[in-house]
């Protein structure tokens, strides 16, 4: 029997964690609790997705961010001793999980990509050395804690007719209020496209000379019915494309039928995100670029020469 807690940030991540949670709990029996903000938004759905209990966290004063829930969650976990706590590997989850783990003096597997039971213990896999290796860990302390990479686990099939208990946690009697205050919030435009579902992904790398040249990559992508992705320098240093399109260790993992890297050197932190592709292709002018050793098919040549020819050939 195991008690598993999930911290809910977004609907999508909560469903994925419930998918993983149900898989784990069905093997040993036990229950799943979802902890969420006081508005309880979306909670009607959670019972069908596998939650046995929902805990609403106390309201936060104006200007406080979600991390302000940490002391309340830590105090409740210290008292109720859940066996497992899962958080999404979102920016928020990646900050909150280690802080909670520190308060609970326990181990945390960051950005977990696989989980299994092994002789009564939980084992987890995670990526190390930039993606060059997979590390398998087990936990020497309780609770077992992990942040889970988005899109790694599927949401469970909802089961109608299940219900979940609801309870609220009171604010801490002698709680200290954190000093961090939000003074401004800017919503970013959300992308409608989802790279992780694309059949073809054409990734742009720093081999492109200027932002306008992305048009070439976009044209190739549209001719093959694919989506454009990129390396981290393009989204994060040059800001040519939104962060959601960054593929790799700190971005998303894709699993298309075809991945084409254009002006991408093929460093391990990027390539770890395309390992799931059926076919990997590359266009790079440096014949010694590491991507050629990790690709099925590669054009050695200048992208400004190769892409127009590729576009012509694809149009035929």
């Amino acid at each position: 029997m195991a008690v598993l807690w999930i911290f809910s940030e977004t609907t999508a991540s909560t469903k994925e964690l419930l998918g993983l949670g149900r898989e784990l709990i069905s093997a040993v029996g036990g229950s799943i609790t979802v902890l969420m903000g006081p508005d309880g938004e979306g909670r009607e759905e959670w019972a069908a997705y596998g939650a046995d209990e929902i805990i609403l966290l106390p309201p936060l004063a104006d200007g406080l961010a979600m991390e302000a829930h940490i002391p309340v969650i830590a105090a409740a976990a210290a008292e109720e001793k859940p066996d497992i706590i899962l958080l999404p590997a979102t920016a928020r989850g990646r900050e909150m999980a280690p802080r909670l783990a520190q308060r609970l003096d326990t181990g945390l597997c960051s950005n977990c990509v696989a989980v299994r039971w092994s002789g009564g213990d939980i084992e987890m896999d995670r990526v190390v050395y930039g993606g060059a290796a997979i590390q398998t860990v087990k936990f020497l302390t309780r609770p077992v804690m992990a942040t889970v990479a988005p899109k790694t686990f599927s949401p469970p099939v909802p089961e109608e007719g299940r219900s979940a208990r609801l309870r609220e946690l009171p604010p801490l009697a002698a709680g200290t209020v954190p000093g961090v205050r939000i003074v401004e919030k800017r919503e970013k435009r959300r992308l409608a496209r989802d790279l992780t579902q694309a059949k073809v992904v054409v990734a742009a790398g720093r081999g492109l000379e200027k932002k306008e040249d992305l048009a070439l990559v976009e044209e190739v992508a549209s001719l093959v019915g694919g989506e454009v992705g990129c390396t981290r320098p393009l989204s994060e240093e040059l800001h040519w494309l939104p962060t959601e399109l960054c593929i790799g260790l700190s971005g998303v993992s894709v699993k298309p039928d075809l991945y084409i890297g254009v002006g991408v050197s093929g460093q391990v932190q990027h390539m770890t995100g395309v390992r799931g592709a059926k076919v990997i292709a590359a266009v790079n002018r440096d014949e010694n670029a590491p991507i050629f050793a990790q690709a099925d098919l590669g054009i050695v040549g200048d992208l400004y020469e190769a892409l127009p020819k590729l576009i012509t050939a694809l149009k035929k």
Partner: peptide, 27 residues
């Protein structure tokens, strides 16, 4: 330690590694 490492294994990347030129016929 709070975590114990049970194994570290290299991530596999077996690919065909076929190269092409940039001339029209090659593309």
């Amino acid at each position: 330690p709070r975590l114990q490492t049970l194994a570290v294994r290299a991530a596999a990347m077996e690919r065909a590694c076929e190269k092409f030129g940039v001339e029209e016929a090659e593309v």
